[in-house]
Amino acid sequence: MIPVFICEDERETREKIKSALEKEILIQGYDMEIICSAERPEELLSCAKSQESRGIYFLDVELKGASIDGFGLGKEIRKLDSRGFLVYVTGFGDLAFETFRYHLEALDYIVKGNDGEMLKRIRTCLAVINHRLTEERGEEKEYFTLKQVDVLRHIPLEDIFYFETTEKKHHILLHYRQGRIDFGGNLNELQGQLGSRFLRIHRTYLVNTMQIDKVDRKNRQVVLKNGEGCWYSRKGKSLLDEYFLHRP
């Protein structure tokens, strides 16, 4: 069961959202339940603390009289539930949604005003979340979490090709299926953290064994499934030999 949370300071809107959600969950038979419909962010947070599973949050951006606004609340929620679904509901259409999406990975941004339109969007949101959850359920992915200065990113382990040091101190370049991410870190620490699925084939490379396509002995390179090559050192060679010897 997936917990659903609402935080909205206007009672009327809160009730509207709540009843729309309840109806939709009932009709579609989603495995969700509204466990908290709060006026103040503190209420929601204390309620969310007692929950362990990934939740769905419908949040107002402007919370009158509260100590934090919806953006601050989103940040707090992310600390508790890093992969939950955040949906913002706001009276102002011109607030910066991309910023929310960037910092909080917010799912949607619904503008209040036209009730019919708003409730339709809420229903769509639930459908999208449900679709995503069913899709993910089958494949139980493992994630690697990195801190990119001020934002956290979750990268599926299986998508990672390799990590590389750069000429800049304390910088690591992560090469994965969707691109490359430059973040602050240390290859030795990463190696310890990621365990035996990653091989340190060179002082500057930490390679995902799942992504090795072949070993090009002539050029002393490991060729990955995306076609990129990484050099290996003599020590790396013996690691590779050992890996392929014991591979099931």
């Binding site: 990195l146 801190k147 990119q148 200065v149 001020d150 304390h170 910088h171 690591i172 994965y176 969707q178 691109g179 490359r180 991410i181 430059d182 973040f183 602050g184 870190g185 240390n186 620490e189 990463l190 953290q193």
Partner: peptide, 27 residues
């Protein structure tokens, strides 16, 4: 920090400029 990656049909190019050296050693 310069990163580029794809996400949901969009190419995201990102430039992050850390204020001081607080990012060091974070993984």
């Amino acid at each position: 920090f310069v990163s580029t990656f794809l996400e949901k049909g969009c190419l995201i190019q990102e430039l992050k400029i850390a204020a001081d050296r607080t990012w060091e050693g974070q993984t």
